[in-house]
Design a protein around this nucleic acid. Structure first.
Lengths: 202, 202
DNA sequence: CAAAAGTGTCAAACATACTGACCCAACACG
DNA sequence: CGTGTTGGGTCAGTATGTTTGACACTTTTG
C-alpha cells in the first residue's frame, strides 16, 4: 500500500470554471493558475521538508526541533521572546521543543548581559553540527531546483514567496538580513556578497 | 557527514569570485542564498495557509480537511487509494479526516461503476461551496503575490517549486493537468455522459 | 474457488500545537 | 525603596494530525 501507483483521476463532473481566454495580461490569474499554485505549494513544501524530516526521525526529533535549530543558528543570541515571535507559537509549545534540545546539549542558554532575565539562545558545537547536517540535506534539494530553474527563475521564486508572506514576516526577514550583514560585515573577511539582492517591492 | 560539496562555500569565507549584478551565474548558490530559501519556504508556506486556516477553525476543521476538499474538488471521482497517494498519508489518517467530511455532507462517496469496490469521492454542493470559500481566501493571497511579482516571476516561482518537488509529485501533477485539460478541453463540459452517482443537484 | 486488491475500522501511541493558571527573577520607575 | 511589569519557565489539560498493527468485508481476477 505504500507504493503509490496513482493513476489519478477518473470521471469528471466539473462545473464550469474558467471563462474563455479574454484578458491576456490577466490570463495568468485564471482560476486554474491559482489552483495550480495551491498544488505547487503543497507538494513543494512537502518534498522540501521530506529529506530533513527523515533524518530527524532517526534522532527522535521532529520538524519543530529543526525549526528551532535553524532559527537559533541563524540568529545566534536570539532571545526566547523573539524566537517565539518568529515561529509564531506559544511559550509552552516552544518549551516542549526547546527544553529537550538544551538537555541534549544542542542549544545553550546564556543570561543576557544587558538584561539578565533574558536567556540568549545559541547552538552548541554539537547543535551546530546537527543543524549543518540537516541544512546540507535540504541544500541538495534546493540547489538542484535552483540550478534546473536558473537564476532568473530563482529571483522570481523569491519575489513570489516574499509576496505570499505577510508584511510582518517580510519585515522580519529584512531586519534579520540587515543584522546579519552588519554582524558579518564588521569582520574583515568578507567580500561584497552581502546584498542578497532582491530589490524589494514597494 | 557529506563531504564538502564542490562549488559550495562554508560559512564566512567564500571565494570572491562573483561580481556584481552581472555575474549571478554562481552567485545564487551561496550558502546564504540557500538558507534564505529555507526561511522563504517557512514563512511563505505559513502565511499562505494562514487565511484558510483561520476560516477552517471557525468550522471546527483543520488544514487536513482543507487538503481533502481541495484535492477531491480538483479530482472529482478520485478513488480513496489515489487520494492517499496524493496526500502521502496513511489510510487511517485519511479516515479520521474524510469520515467527518462525509458525515457533514461535504464529500460524497459513490461506488465505482467499473470496480464496485472503489468509493469514488466528490464534493457535494455544500462541499463545493465551502471549498470555494476557502479557495477564494487563498486566492487573495496568491493573486496579490503574483501581481506584485509579475508574470515572469510567477513563471520562475513555478519552475523552482516544481524543482523542489520529487519526481513522483511532478509526474502526478502533470498527469492531473493532462487529464484536466482533456476533460475540460475536449468536452465543453457538460455533466458527464455517465452519472457518477447521484444525479441531480439543486 | 482462492488469491489479491480496495476500503473501512478498532486500538494504541506519538508529536505538535493550544489555553489557562501560576511562579520566579530581574528590571523600571515613581 | 516598593510596586508593577516584563522575560522566562512550568504544570495540567485538550485537540489535531499523524503513525503502526491487526483485522474484516467486498469485489475483482487468475
Amino acid at each position: 500500500m505504500p507504493a503509490p501507483p496513482p493513476g489519478l483521476i477518473k470521471d469528471g463532473t466539473r462545473p464550469a470554471q474558467h471563462q474563455g481566454a479574454a484578458g491576456q495580461d490577466l490570463l495568468f490569474l485564471r482560476e486554474e493558475e491559482l489552483r495550480a499554485a495551491q498544488d505547487l505549494m503543497f507538494f513543494g513544501y512537502r518534498d522540501f521538508t521530506a529529506g530533513a524530516d527523515a533524518m530527524l526521525e532517526e534522532l527522535g526529533l521532529g520538524r519543530a526541533h529543526h525549526r528551532v535549530l535553524h532559527f537559533v543558528g541563524r540568529h545566534p543570541g536570539i532571545t526566547v521572546g523573539d524566537l517565539l515571535g518568529i515561529l509564531g507559537v506559544t511559550k509552552q509549545s516552544l518549551g516542549r521543543v526547546l527544553t529537550p534540545l538544551v538537555e541534549q546539549g544542542l542549544v545553550q542558554q546564556a543570561p543576557g548581559r544587558a538584561d539578565r532575565r533574558q536567556r540568549l539562545l545559541a547552538l552548541t558545537p554539537d547543535g551546530n553540527v546537527l543543524e549543518r547536517r540537516l541544512f546540507e540535506r535540504q541544500r541538495e534539494t534546493v540547489m538542484r531546483a535552483y540550478r534546473e530553474a536558473g537564476p532568473q527563475a530563482v529571483d522570481g521564486f523569491r519575489r513570489v514567496m516574499r509576496g505570499l508572506m505577510g508584511a510582518e514576516a517580510r519585515a522580519a526577514m529584512d531586519r534579520a538580513a540587515l543584522d546579519r550583514s552588519r554582524r558579518d560585515g564588521e569582520r574583515p573577511l568578507r567580500d561584497g556578497g552581502r546584498p542578497l539582492r532582491d530589490g524589494g517591492q514597494p
